[in-house]
């Protein structure tokens, strides 16, 4: 870049055109809806919304639907909450996003990114789960019953991931809690599907979802008092 300022300007113009990334149609629509190019870009690059993850989700739910047809046990409603919990725990956050420290200093903050990614992941997983349920005749009666437990397990996984700064721990907590719930339901009623079918459980699920969402909001906010975060070298 020693040839002079005009040549430098010309080269930068060329480089800008050659290197520029053309956002896809989905990203452009999201940018209009979210009124933020940054949020749109963050949303389309969500790990758990990328194709490999979605294919894995479809594979798990398809296997669940097939097993439901073969055995008569409604597996899709029992699988869907865990699938969603994993997706949401990996949506964003400390220990998950490698550039987390950097994003804490940006105007479109980590919490905003989280707030757009979580509904997107949840909605996508819910749609996939509904499709799998529809294909599974034994689960048809439970089609909507698992949405509330799915919200609760997802919120629990995200809250634990946020507090512990580890998506894996979040997934483990969601999976562990859900397994415990299903096993308890089976022990109490003789049917594992009672974990998603009993109306009496809806309120506890909803309370858990709201409480965990509150924990996430508090955990991802910029703390007004010290204590959160860890000291670093230097």
């Amino acid at each position: 870049m020693n040839e002079g300022p005009d040549l430098e300007r010309v080269w930068l113009g060329v480089a800008a055109q050659v290197w520029r990334r053309r956002p896809g149609r989905v990203e452009r629509v999201l940018a209009v809806l979210l009124r933020s190019d940054g949020l749109a870009r963050a949303l389309v690059s969500t790990p758990s919304l990328l194709l490999p993850w979605l294919l894995a989700t479809v594979a798990v739910l398809t296997a669940g639907a097939a097993a439901s047809v073969a055995t008569g046990t409604p597996l899709v409603p029992l699988l869907a909450p865990v699938v969603a919990a994993a997706g949401i725990a990996y949506a964003y956050g400390p220990g998950v996003d490698p550039a987390y420290e950097l994003t804490r200093s940006l105007p479109v903050g980590d919490r905003m990114v989280l707030l757009v990614r979580v509904p997107a992941v949840f909605g996508t997983d819910a749609l996939l789960g509904l499709a799998a349920s529809a294909a599974s005749p034994h689960a048809a009666a439970l089609t909507f019953g698992w949405l509330v437990p799915m919200a609760a397990v997802s919120a629990l996984a995200l809250a634990v991931a946020t507090i512990t700064r580890s998506a894996n721990t979040g997934v483990a907590a969601g999976l562990g809690a859900w397994c415990l719930t299903v096993v308890s339901a089976r022990a109490a009623t003789g049917h594992a599907a009672a974990a998603v079918a009993r109306p009496a459980l809806l309120i506890p699920y909803a309370v858990l979802a709201v409480a965990c969402a509150a924990v996430v909001l508090i955990g991802t906010g910029t703390p007004r008092t010290p204590g959160l975060g860890a000291p670093k070298r230097g």
Binding site: R21, S36, D37, G38, R41, A42, S45, A99, L102, T103, L106, P107, V108
Partner: peptide, 8 residues
């Protein structure tokens, strides 16, 4: 570019 967009 991603960081530039998040810097609004």
């Amino acid at each position: 570019e991603y960081i530039a967009l998040l810097k609004e």
